[in-house]
Design a protein around this nucleic acid. Structure first.
Lengths: 106, 106
DNA sequence: ACGATATACTATGTGTTGTATAGTATGCAC
DNA sequence: GTGCATACTATACAACACATAGTATATCGT
């Protein structure tokens, strides 16, 4: 999928992956992969940004001798998703414009 | 509208604005404004990129003593739009995923 | 006459962000 | 004991929207 198209939707996808239950980096990647390719070097910076903006909370726990960071979505995070669904309406208007113009000029 | 959401769609909007007839910077901005805010410092670099990638052709003409650059869409440009419409299907899948998850967790 | 506004384009610098690449470290299957 | 899955960190880069500023002509209100 086009890199530029991803930009507006990737962090929302990550937040969505946390809706059902807290999760951690590796699992989030596996959960999102069916919908969109995402690499570690993309996800971890996103998680740090989400934490800085209070959209997620972090809880570090030991797992098999290693530290694993569990991320849980906050109320702020949920609001980010609903705000996105609102924004999406503008996107649909633009899409309708593009589709209409190209069909009118075939 | 969110900056990151715009990124994947702005150049396609510009190409769409050229479908009916060739146009120039100032007019393109006015044509797109009803759908999405776009400034000169965003549009002109886009036009230069579209030219470099052969999606548009440039024809400089004198108009009221000033040079005005008329941009017309090429076959490559039209293909860019149809490719975008294809990509959009992936976007709709992701949107359905997000919407489904948040409705399931109200 | 003169300033404000619309028109039309160029140039520079900045901040956000996706991604490649590389590194560290544990547990398990063969 | 070698590969593979797991789990996270750090650095560097390139694309791109946008702010800001500059140049320059035409038109309109007063």
């Amino acid at each position: 999928m086009d890199v530029q198209l991803k930009r507006g939707i990737l962090d929302i996808c990550v937040l969505t992956a946390l809706l059902k239950e807290p999760s951690y980096g590796y699992k989030i990647i596996k959960d999102i992969q069916p919908y969109m390719s995402i690499s570690e070097s993309t996800l971890y910076p996103i998680l740090r940004r989400l934490e800085e903006s209070n959209a997620v909370l972090v809880n570090t726990q030991e797992h098999n001798g290693r530290l694993r960071k569990y991320y849980s979505i906050t109320e702020t995070g949920r609001n980010r998703i609903t705000a996105f669904l609102e924004e999406w309406k503008s996107m649909m208007d633009i899409y309708a414009f593009i589709e209409g113009e190209i069909k009118g000029n075939d």
